[in-house]
Amino acid sequence: MNGSKGGVAFAVIVVLSIAVAVGFVISPQPTSVLSQVIPPNPAYTNSTTLYANAAGWDTPTQYGNTNAAIPVNPTLNYTAGTVVTFTVIETDSLPHNLYIAKGTSENLAAYYSVIGAINPIPGSKYTGEWYAQTPGVYTYWCQVHPTTMVGTINVLPANSTSISNNVVKSTELAPVGVHSPAIQLSISHAVNIQDGFSAISHNSLVLNNCPCFADGPGINWIPIEQIATGIRI
């Protein structure tokens, strides 16, 4: 680069690198093998057996149906924090696999391959683990027969508090100390289930039936100008 294009070359490299790096970093991240092998503190375990048939997935245990020819594509429900061990049993002589993706439809951009491929010999068994971690709707399917062998997984929240983090039920808030009067604390705001959290605007915290506020229910928060007064050294 004896010429004068050095700066332009550098600028082009910079712009390209920024585009590649930003695009890569914020792109959806597939769940890695490592996190599936060692799930952190699995709360529950579950075993699910699925019969693989080109006409649809089938679970005899759940539906009392041992006839693999009747496709059901069952909807599977798990509690969040469950390590699910899938057992897939071949019924027809066709190749199958088992993929799971978040969302209501098949998604080849970000999926987890529970069972990559099975040997098309009827009766052969394959197992794979999947960690049902985040609550939500998932889709499981066979990529060889994506239109027929597709079903839904619901991962339900482990406890209600983990979803509505910031809703304080009035029964939960008991008076502290012997002399304090009964207090009802209600926080009025919409809960956005999607991100499990919603903003509490500062004037939504209202204390009811509290004798400490003579003028009844009202706004009671420390104004930002007075915050420094609470500092202890």
Binding site: T31, L34, S35, I38, P40, Y131, T134
Partner: peptide, 14 residues
Amino acid sequence: ALQGTLSGAGADNW
């Protein structure tokens, strides 16, 4: 850092 999930440290933190 050892929580190899998307909501923890990221799947490929190693």
